[in-house]
Design a protein around this nucleic acid. Structure first.
Length: 201
DNA sequence: ACGGGGATCCTCT
DNA sequence: GAGGATCCCCGTT
């Protein structure tokens, strides 16, 4: 895409409802520092989870030990383990105590691709960060990253001025509130976990 | 202390 | 399109 240095998204960017933050995260660059190495990818797919207003949210029933970072201040990571196997990363939004977040579902890899390949034990770039569990593994994310500050140096998101066309769709893999179109993705991207439904003319 | 279920992924067919 | 892997989390006893 482009090569400008870009600016780190400030905490104020995250201090808004998840359904407002989510579509704006598409087209931003997620950067992960692993030791001396930087891994990065363009965010192409996310989902918003609206806390107490959203039965599909882990935060729906209030704070617990697992989800407590979602109730912390915005601009931090919420990492959970899914199906006992996968680590999935969310960005916490809104003010402290609200409990809303945006799930990062897919990236278009940009740098550190060989390291991602090693972490995934997979060559094919298109599949390295496709799906939240795969994304977590490709970036070396685990529960120890839960609560990490995104206004920091280990993991952060920058705006390089990319402005892809954004489409909305229903969220994947949930049984409640399934009709809410709170999944957002870059239209036409080949790196999304599932293509957006394109209405046939 | 117990048990059911899950914001997934991969391998088949 | 279906099913198993795999284990943590949480509500219930």
């Amino acid at each position: 895409m482009n090569r400008e240095p870009g600016t780190i998204l400030p905490r104020s960017f995250y201090a808004r409802p998840a359904i407002d933050v989510a579509p704006e995260l598409v087209g931003k660059l997620l950067v992960r520092r692993l030791g001396e190495e930087l891994l990065s990818g363009w965010i192409v797919e996310v989902e918003a989870y609206m806390g107490s207003q959203d039965p599909a949210s882990h935060a729906y029933g209030g704070p617990t030990q697992r989800n407590h970072s979602m109730f912390g201040p915005p601009g931090h990571l919420y990492v959970y383990r899914s199906y006992g196997v996968h680590f999935c990363a969310n960005v916490v939004t809104s003010e402290e105590g609200v409990g809303t977040a945006v799930l990062l579902r897919a990236l278009e890899p940009e740098s550190g691709i060989d390291q991602m390949r090693r972490l995934r034990d997979l060559d094919e770039i298109r599949r390295l960060c496709r799906g939240p569990g795969n994304l977590g593994r490709a970036l070396g994310i685990s529960r120890s990253d839960d609560g990490a500050d995104l206004i920091g140096s280990d993991i952060f998101i920058i705006d390089r001025g990319s402005r892809p066309e954004i489409g909305a769709a229903t969220r994947i893999g949930i049984n409640v509130a399934a009709e809410r179109p709170w999944r957002f993705a870059a239209v036409g991207s080949r790196f999304v976990s599932r293509p957006l439904h394109v209405p046939s003319s």
